[in-house]
Amino acid sequence: MKWYIARRLAWTVVATFIILSLTFGLMAASPDPQAASYVAQQVQEGGDFEEAQESYERARGLDQPLWERYKNYMIGMVTLDWGWSETRSQPVTEAILEAWPYSVMYATPALIISTVLGVAIGLYSATHRNSLEDYAASAFAFFGISIPDFWFGILMILIFGVWLGWIPIYYHSDVPWFSLQNVQQLIAPTLVVTLSSIASEMRFSRATALEYVNAEFVKTAKAKGADSWRRVTRHIFRPALVPLSTILVGDILNIVLVSSYLVEVVFGIPGLGQLSYKAIIQQDVALVLATVLIPTFIAIVGNLFQDLAYTVLDPRISYGER
């Protein structure tokens, strides 16, 4: 077990290294829109093309040999010097530090609500298969899966913001974080993200629990005299936790990679999604890279925790001691 964890940790470091190196390769190979516009500007002002290019490269350290740049890039990554955002005129890390709390403010409650409720409803559906409640839950889940986040967000703004006037039409970032007003304006985006992830949680936990509902060991538990609550919580939910634990990481990634862009643009929340979206539109290479690396790291760390959770949850896994 110890060796398994040690190997797993080592692999995390290796994976991170490989991803960072690939990112560097992509960056070195792609054209630099900033350089193009700088040179164009210099030439327009009567400067020499070659000279302008050279001075730009000098300023960026691009005149150094490739491996030198690679070394500086890796050192920068490790020391959290992730480059300079041209469009925002601030270090990339600073832009991210300013943005992330806004994403966390709606993503965390959405994640908690969708996980707890989604799994609970899924378990209920599985143990009451083909009941009216099960059909209702399935219909709700398919609604959640089918409706696009951005459209549902726009509907919320239209109905509750414009027609009913219960919520602001767009997010006010000057409102204090810990205030009722902030909670009020976070309700709609939280609901939108919750809906899209609760649907998949429900379907997945229903399917997973169904495998165990008719398991022989559940019948054994019944034959031992366990009541239905004990059978569901101890004998169905507990073994189902093993596959269920895998969906959490994917769910977080889905929020970071998909929902955050749509929701933050629709509601005007200055979070990571909007930061990344603007960086892409404005071709701010350093900022795009940084915001794309975040979900990558979440995936790596999330998978690490998932594998560590397995060691606790499933006694059957053999860890192949050295």
Partner: peptide, 9 residues
């Protein structure tokens, strides 16, 4: 094989 719950001792 199936009558015992695999995740408990």
């Amino acid at each position: 094989q199936g009558a015992l719950n695999p995740v408990y001792t």
